[in-house]
Each structure stands twice: as structure tokens, then as C-alpha cells.
């Protein structure tokens, strides 16, 4: 069952990658745009499709219009502090069924900005606000980019890996 599923998702991924290569070749991200730290694990290695951050809206719209991935299920962010970047992960589904198509994109930590998908998927609004609230990722074109969990007055982005460590257990350090 899970084997079937992973086979299916690998096939979906390869199809989508081939289609993107044919129609949006400039959107695919070259590997190695972020350096890997010496000795550490390479967290950037992935078999998923990695696209240019600034092209994410074009890619997403292409997936919807041409490949029928009309359901944007999930947007989330990962802080890869060691690599100096944030990774954004998007999951798309086809309503006819099948596993999710995972699209990843990477942003420099100094300037985490990329186009918003909210104008095309209104349901993305809360998820983008969450990524903004907790990681400080700026979605350009989002109609209402405010904090969603923390109060508006709060400073800092608590899910970043370099957010101040807290708790009694660090007091003795």
C-alpha cells in the first residue's frame, strides 16, 4: 500500500518535473545555490521539485492550470539555520485523488521574501500568515499580512532556530 503510494508519488513528481522543465525551465532552481556547511548533514538534498522562490506563483498557477493540481493543501516553512536559508514546502493535490505533489523553495535568511499565493488560492491566507508570524517570511502580494497567533505587539519570530532560548533548564548555563 505505502509502496504503491510512494511509487505513484514518484511518478507524479517525475511527470510534473518534466512538464516544468518543458514549459517553465527558468523556474526550476539549480542545486547548490545555498552552501552546505562543512561536515554537517546536507539537509538540502531532496528528491522533491525545488523551484525558484520568486517563480512560486507562476509554478503554482501552472500546476493548477496545466497539471490539474487544483487543491493547495499546505504551506509550511522550515528554518535551515545551518544552511542560511528558509525552506518553504507546498503540498498540492488533485481532486481526482492520488498522493500530494511536494514543491519546495528556498529563501535566504537575510531577506525571506517571495510572492504570495493568496491572490490565487484565498485559502492560503491563514497559512501564509502563520509562516509570517512564526518565521518572519514575507509574502509579497498578500492582502492582509498580519500576525495570526502571536499578538500584534510581539517582537521576534518564535519558531526561528535562533530565537532566544527560554526556560528554566537554561538558567544554569
Amino acid at each position: 500500500m505505502s509502496d504503491d503510494n510512494s511509487e505513484l508519488s514518484a511518478r507524479q513528481r517525475d511527470e510534473a518535473r518534466a512538464a516544468l522543465q518543458r514549459d517553465l525551465p527558468f523556474a526550476l532552481s539549480p542545486s547548490g545555490s545555498f552552501p552546505s556547511p562543512e561536515g554537517g548533514p546536507d539537509l538540502l538534498a531532496t528528491s522533491d521539485i525545488v523551484v525558484e522562490a520568486q517563480q512560486i506563483a507562476a509554478v503554482a498557477r501552472y500546476l493548477r492550470a496545466s497539471l490539474n493540481y487544483i487543491y493547495l493543501s499546505n504551506i509550511t516553512a522550515v528554518d535551515l539555520l545551518a544552511h542560511g536559508c528558509f525552506e518553504l514546502v507546498y503540498h498540492f493535490y488533485r481532486l481526482s485523488g492520488g498522493p500530494a505533489l511536494t514543491i519546495k523553495t528556498r529563501l535566504p535568511r537575510e531577506k525571506p521574501e517571495l510572492p504570495s499565493l493568496t491572490p490565487f488560492w484565498p485559502g492560503a491566507a491563514f497559512q501564509e500568515r502563520e509562516a509570517y508570524d512564526l518565521f518572519g517570511i514575507v509574502f509579497k502580494g498578500h492582502p492582509d499580512l498580519r500576525r495570526i497567533y502571536m499578538w500584534d505587539e510581539f517582537e521576534g519570530f518564535p519558531m526561528r532556530k535562533d530565537f532566544v532560548r527560554q526556560g528554566d533548564k537554561y538558567l544554569s548555563e
Partner: peptide
């Protein structure tokens, strides 16, 4: 801290790890 660390390189960030607290 955010200002310093986002501009620091990875090695410096690792060194500075202990100073976060």
C-alpha cells in the same frame, strides 16, 4: 540578536550558539 545572527555566517552562528542564552 536577530540582527546579528542573520548577518553572521554559519560558522559564527554556530560559535555564537552558546551566547544566545
Amino acid at each position: 540578536e536577530l540582527r546579528e545572527e542573520t548577518s553572521a555566517s554559519y560558522a559564527e552562528a554556530l560559535e555564537g550558539e552558546d551566547q544566545h542564552v
